[in-house]
């Protein structure tokens, strides 16, 4: 295993130089034990091609910077071991996001825009009293919120989503999951109608066509199908005029 020679076919394009058409560049590398795409790409940059653009930050599947299409699947490059792949490894940048160059895409801008659209902050009329004890919360509720908040904004779900590929304004699984996170949070005082305003359209809950590439490719293994369906049902119920007894804070 350790003696394999790997062939990397890497997408190259610099949007600042559009006169040079996109092309695939080939690099060869000897595999070493425990090699991940993170190690491989850095070696290629240091030893063969210092102009190659790609993004890594934490290299531990926490920050979500390094998502790319690896042999046809959106994945985190840091978490992808080369020994799980064939000799030939094809790397493409994520679609949907603005291309910065080669494998580097601008996920940050997309996600900030999504956060603004979904108003991803706790809407509360309370002001913080530094002297008061914290408000109590059920630990189970805290865990549920955390479950939805585990999203690392890597963009795998968006890149794999056919709807997101053709509809610029679609929130995608990450966006709808984000709304679910706040719907579950008792501190958020938004009314059902306000939530309907945020996701009650084809840009939100009703835009999903159920292809589930998000669910299949989430590196954090978030239960995206269930989160999407949860929001769809709740929002549909709100739209049809059901008045939930205790707000919509019930999972």
């Amino acid at each position: 295993m350790a003696d394999r020679e790997l062939t990397f076919e890497v997408f190259r394009f610099n949007p600042q130089k559009p006169e040079i058409q996109p092309y695939l560049q080939t690099y060869k590398l000897n595999e070493t034990t425990g090699m991940t795409i993170f190690i491989a790409l850095n070696r290629i940059r240091e030893e063969q091609d210092p102009s190659l653009m790609f993004d890594f930050v934490c290299r531990a599947a926490i920050c979500g910077s390094c998502a790319m299409i690896i042999n046809g699947r959106p994945r985190l490059a840091c978490k992808t071991l080369t020994n799980t792949l064939p000799n030939k490894i094809k790397l493409f940048p994520l679609p949907v996001f603005k291309l910065i160059g080669d494998l580097s895409v601008d996920t940050g801008t997309w996600f900030r825009h999504m956060s603004l659209k979904t108003e991803s902050w706790v809407h509360t009329s309370k002001t913080f009293d530094p002297k008061a004890q914290e408000e109590r919360m059920d630990n189970e509720t805290a865990n549920k919120i955390y479950e939805a908040e585990r999203c690392i904004e890597c963009g795998c779900c968006i890149a794999g989503c056919a709807t997101a590929n053709i509809r610029d304004e679609f929130l995608g699984a990450a966006g709808i999951n984000r709304v679910a996170r706040f719907m579950l949070d008792p501190r958020d005082e938004r009314t059902p109608a306000e939530y309907f305003e945020v996701v009650g359209s084809e840009e939100g809950a009703f835009g999903c066509m159920g292809l589930m590439a998000c669910d299949d490719n989430c590196p954090m293994e978030l239960p995206l199908q269930m989160q999407l369906a949860f929001v769809r049902r709740k929002i549909a119920a709100i739209g049809l005029g059901y008045k939930p007894k205790k707000g919509i804070k019930l999972a």
Partner: peptide, 18 residues
């Protein structure tokens, strides 16, 4: 064309079935 390209790039059954 985007959708066709997308389906071809992505090795994903449910996308093809759609």
């Amino acid at each position: 064309r985007i959708v066709w390209q997308h389906a071809k790039m992505l090795h994903h059954t449910d996308t093809w079935t759609w």
